[in-house]
């Protein structure tokens, strides 16, 4: 079975992640959706790396993981800060972006 199927799988996972971001009000849930999207992208990278035969895709995926780890740390810290300040982590509440 061709590794390209993993790309399809990644597309499905990415779509689920995107839908999560759009639909869940809980910031942590949305954040997990983002993580899922990142992983889907990683899966694509690895799959293409396998198909091309080189290793650069894996290196790239590794970097993504590291950056994602850093991002998760900061993101969750922000969520905690917000929850302290507002007693809520609902995404619908911080309407200060309102024009």
């Amino acid at each position: 079975m061709s590794p390209v199927n993993f790309v399809y799988l990644a597309a499905v996972l990415f779509a689920i992640g995107a839908a999560t971001v759009l639909l869940r009000r809980n910031a942590i849930m949305a954040f997990m959706g983002v993580e899922l999207m990142l992983n889907a992208a990683n899966l694509t990278l690895v799959a293409f790396s396998r198909m091309v035969g080189g290793i650069e895709g894996q290196i790239m995926a590794f970097f993504v993981m590291v950056v994602a780890a850093a991002e998760v740390v900061v993101g969750l810290a922000i969520i905690i800060a917000v929850s302290r300040a507002r007693q809520s982590i609902s995404l619908d509440e911080p309407s200060e972006l309102k024009g």
Partner: peptide, 8 residues
């Protein structure tokens, strides 16, 4: 898309 038979 083609698949490399001898990947690293």
């Amino acid at each position: 898309l083609s698949v490399n038979e001898q990947p690293v």
